[in-house]
Amino acid sequence: MSTRHILLGLLASGPSHGYDLKRRHDQRFPQARPLAYGQAYTTLQRLVRDGLAEVDTTGSDGGPERTAYRSTEAGVRELARWAGEVAPPAPFVANEIFTKVVVSILSGGDPAGYLREQQAAHKERMRELTAVKTADGADLATVLSADYALDHLDADLRWMTTTGARLATLTAEVAPT
Rank of each mutant, 00 (worst) to 15 (best):
M1K: 08
M1T: 13
M1A: 10
S2M: 12
L8I: 01
L8Q: 11
L8W: 10
G9F: 01
G9W: 06
L10V: 00
L10K: 03
L11Q: 14
A12T: 09
G14C: 10
P15R: 05
S16L: 11
H17S: 15
H17V: 10
H17F: 11
G18L: 04
L21S: 02
L21A: 02
R24V: 07
R24T: 08
R24G: 01
R24N: 04
H25I: 02
D26C: 06
Q27L: 03
F29Q: 06
F29P: 10
F29S: 09
P30E: 04
Q31T: 15
T42F: 10
Q45T: 11
Q45L: 04
R46G: 06
L47Q: 06
L47K: 03
R49E: 07
D50T: 11
D50C: 10
G51F: 00
V55S: 05
V55R: 14
D56C: 07
D56W: 10
G59A: 05
D61T: 06
P64D: 04
R66C: 04
T67L: 00
T67W: 02
A68L: 09
Y69H: 14
A74Y: 03
R77L: 04
A80L: 14
A80P: 08
A80R: 15
W82E: 11
W82Y: 15
A83C: 03
G84L: 04
A87L: 04
F92T: 14
V93R: 13
A94F: 10
N95R: 11
T99R: 09
V101G: 08
V103F: 04
V103N: 10
V103L: 06
V103G: 12
S104H: 07
S104G: 15
I105S: 08
L106N: 13
L106T: 08
G109L: 07
D110L: 07
L115N: 02
E117R: 12
Q118M: 01
Q119L: 01
Q119K: 07
A120Y: 07
R127Q: 02
T130C: 00
T130M: 00
A131N: 12
V132M: 05
K133C: 06
K133G: 08
T134R: 03
T134Q: 03
D136P: 03
D136W: 02
A138I: 13
D139R: 13
D139K: 09
L140N: 13
L140Y: 12
A141Q: 01
T142G: 01
V143K: 03
A149G: 01
A149S: 04
L150V: 03
L150E: 07
L153Y: 12
L153S: 09
L153F: 07
L153Q: 08
D154V: 14
D156H: 12
D156P: 05
D156C: 09
L157V: 11
R158K: 15
W159Y: 06
T162G: 09
T163K: 05
L167G: 12
T169R: 06
L170V: 02
L170F: 00
A172C: 05
V174P: 00
A175Y: 10
